[in-house]
Amino acid sequence: MTLEYDLFWSFRSPYSYLVTPRLMELERDYDVRCNVRPVYPIAVRLKGFFKQVNPLWPPYLMKDTVRIAEMEGLPFRWPSPDPIVMDMAKGEVPEEQPYIHRLTRLGIAAAEKGKGLPFLREVGGVIFGGTRNWHEGDHLKDAAARAGLDLAELDRAIEADPARFEAVITANEAAQKAAGHWGVPLMVFEGEPFFGQDRVDHLTWRLGKHGLKKRG
C-alpha cells in the first residue's frame, strides 16, 4: 500500500525550497506519495508579523539558508523580486500582492494535475536559485514545462474560478493549523507534524514504522 503524507509549502519560504529535492528523492526511492498543499506565507496570513519579529532572526535566517544550500549543493540567492512585496525596514506588508497569490494558486493547479512536487521544485528553483526577474519572460513557463505542465493551461484554470482556488488555500491553511503547527515546510503523516527542512529523516523513520517500502 502506498503511504501518503501532506506537505504544507510556501513560495516565499527558502526552507520550503531547500527541502523539496529531498522530498522528491524520497518519493523516487520509496513507495510514498506527497500530497502538495500550498499555503500563503505568514507575512500575508498574520498582519503585522514582521513588526514583532526578533531583529536577530532575519540575519540568522540568511546565514542558515546560505549554509544549508551550500551543504545540499543547491544554488541560492534571495529572490529578486521578493514573492512578497513589503517594506523590510518597517515590516509593513501592503494588501496588494502581485506575485504570491498567483504563485500559490499555480501550486494548487499543479497539484491537481498530479505534478505538485515537480512544480514546486522547478518554480522554487527559479525563484530562489538566482534568476533575477523570475516573474518576467518565460522563466515560469519554462519551469512549468520542466515539471511536465503547461503554464497557460494552469493560468486558464485559475482564471475560470479563482474563488475555488482561494477556498482550497484556506482549507490547506486550516488543515495545517489543525495538524499542530503554523510554519513551512510542514510534513504531516497520520496527523503527526514534522516541521522544518531538517525533519525529512524523522518523517522517513516514521513512515518506516508504517511499512514504507523501497521501489523496485
Results as ranks from 00 to 15, higher is better:
P98D: 12
V32S: 08
V44H: 10
A144E: 03
G183Q: 08
R37M: 10
A163L: 13
K90N: 13
Y5R: 12
K177R: 15
L7G: 09
E70M: 06
A143F: 01
L74H: 00
I158Y: 09
G196H: 09
G180M: 12
H181I: 03
S10T: 03
T204W: 05
D201S: 11
K209M: 14
L18H: 02
T2D: 03
L46P: 00
A171D: 10
E153K: 07
L3I: 01
A145L: 09
G114N: 02
K209A: 14
S16D: 03
L23N: 04
M62T: 12
I108A: 00
L154P: 06
F119V: 08
A145G: 03
D150L: 01
G137N: 06
N54E: 12
T20F: 01
A69D: 05
N172F: 01
K63F: 07
H135E: 15
F165S: 05
Q97K: 07
T2F: 01
V188F: 11
A160D: 10
H139V: 02
F49T: 07
R33M: 00
T170P: 00
F195V: 14
I100Q: 13
P81A: 03
Q176Y: 04
L212I: 11
D150P: 01
K115W: 04
R12W: 09
T204Y: 00
F11L: 10
A178Q: 14
Y17M: 02
V19D: 01
A152F: 08
D82P: 00
L103H: 06
R105A: 15
V126E: 08
K113H: 13
L212A: 13
P162H: 05
V36D: 05
A157I: 04
P79I: 10
I100E: 10
S10D: 06
I84F: 04
G114I: 07
G107F: 06
T131Y: 02
R67T: 13
Y40A: 05
T20Q: 00
T104L: 09
G114Q: 02
S80I: 06
M187W: 08
P14A: 05
E136V: 04
D6G: 05
R121G: 04
A109V: 07
Q52G: 06
L117T: 09
V188Y: 12
G196R: 08
G48N: 11
R37Q: 13
L149W: 00
G125A: 04
K47F: 11
L203R: 08
D31V: 10
Q176K: 15
G208D: 04
H139K: 11
L74D: 00
P98C: 13
G216S: 14
F194M: 10
S80Q: 14
E27H: 02
E122C: 03
L117S: 07
N133F: 06
P55H: 11
R102G: 09
R132N: 13
T204I: 04
L56T: 12
L117R: 09
Y40M: 14
G114M: 02
G208W: 03
M88L: 10
T131W: 00
V184A: 15
A111W: 10
A163T: 11
S80A: 03
E27Q: 15
